[in-house]
């Protein structure tokens, strides 16, 4: 669907995006992660035609961005960061204007605006000036704007930034709802968001791709380890250490004392082997009481920090 090759963007001497190459498949929900200033927004701005690449190309379907910019813009719906809109226009007038520019037929227009107002929960603010709306509503107007022409590709730049938790959940719901049929690219620096909504994640740091894959794949390849948390009653740390650290694949073992007589055990294991069965068998042989047992993947946060703080 989208093919990005050797994409580079310089602002004077500053290299914002550095030779990025990747493909996005049809129907994929792609999360673009990275710290502030990593080049996420610059990349999205090049994809949407706002900025011209210094080097490299973007191909959307069969269109090349240098030659068929207008056709590509027609395929894309774009919600810019912090949804900058015309503050003195009414929400309805704004959407109507967008519908005109997107060349919706006049008989289609009203029903489309109604549907989007329902989908984005805009009905009660349609006749208010955009400048007077709260941030959450502005964001929703921006989302309705992006979806106006029912585009095949949706590009959302930090769609949930500055929203309260309820609004974040609502926007996420909307994205999930529409994501079933469309290719969506979301940029964010909120990791849980990417984890919750995206099929695939690309982590960018200093203009370069440092990780690319599904959340699970990134977690596994990036860490090589996973954690097992166990809570045991009537066990002492010494015997537990003796018993469990002899299992092959256990890298490290840590203890924490919770309530009285309950011992928290934290095992770090190599991700090459699943040793949960073996741990259970060992515990069964003793007279410890097993209260809790769960596996924990290395969180995306850790991986993100490691990948983006290197060098």
């Amino acid at each position: 669907m989208i093919h990005v090759e050797n994409l580079t963007k310089y602002f004077n001497d500053l290299c914002a995006v550095d030779q990025i190459t990747f493909d996005i498949q049809k129907g994929e929900i792609l999360g673009l992660l990275g710290p502030n200033g990593a080049g996420k927004t610059t990349f999205l701005r090049m994809l949407t035609g706002y900025l011209a690449p210094t080097l490299g190309t973007i191909r959307v379907k069969d269109y090349i961005i240098d030659e068929h910019l207008l056709e590509i813009k027609k395929l894309l719906g774009y919600l810019p960061e912090s949804a900058p809109l015309y503050h003195d226009m009414l929400a309805y007038d704004y959407l109507n204007y967008i519908a005109d520019v997107r060349e919706l037929r006049s008989e289609q227009k009203l029903s489309r605006i109604r549907r989007l107002a329902d989908l984005c929960g805009l009905n009660e603010v349609m006749h208010q000036p955009i400048g007077e709306l709260s941030k959450g509503y502005k964001q929703r107007v921006g989302l309705a704007h992006a979806m106006m022409s029912d585009p095949e590709i949706l590009v959302l730049d930090e769609p949930t930034s500055g929203l309260d938790p309820n609004q974040i959940v609502e926007i996420r719901e909307i994205i999930k709802k529409i994501g079933k049929k469309k290719t969506i690219i979301i940029s964010t620096h909120i990791l849980s968001e990417a984890e919750a909504a995206c099929d695939r994640i690309i982590i960018i740091n200093r203009g370069r791709i440092v990780a690319d894959g599904s959340t699970e794949a990134i977690k596994q390849t990036a860490s090589g380890e996973y954690l097992v948390n166990i809570s045991l009653q009537s066990a002492d740390s010494k015997s537990v250490e003796r018993e469990l650290s002899s299992i092959e694949g256990v890298v490290d073992i840590g203890f924490s004392n919770g309530e009285e007589n309950i011992l928290g055990v934290r095992l770090t294991c190599k991700s090459s082997a699943d040793i949960r069965g073996e741990i259970y068998r060992r515990i069964k042989q003793t007279d410890w009481i097993l209260l809790e047992f769960h596996q924990e993947r290395r969180s995306l946060e850790n991986i993100f920090r490691r990948l983006t703080q290197e060098n």
């Binding site: 015309y86 520019v101 997107r102 704007h145």
Partner: peptide, 14 residues
């Protein structure tokens, strides 16, 4: 200054 310039330029217009 408002930033709507970005909206304007990413719409399918020349």
């Amino acid at each position: 200054s408002v930033g709507s310039y970005e909206v304007l330029l990413t719409m399918p217009v020349t």
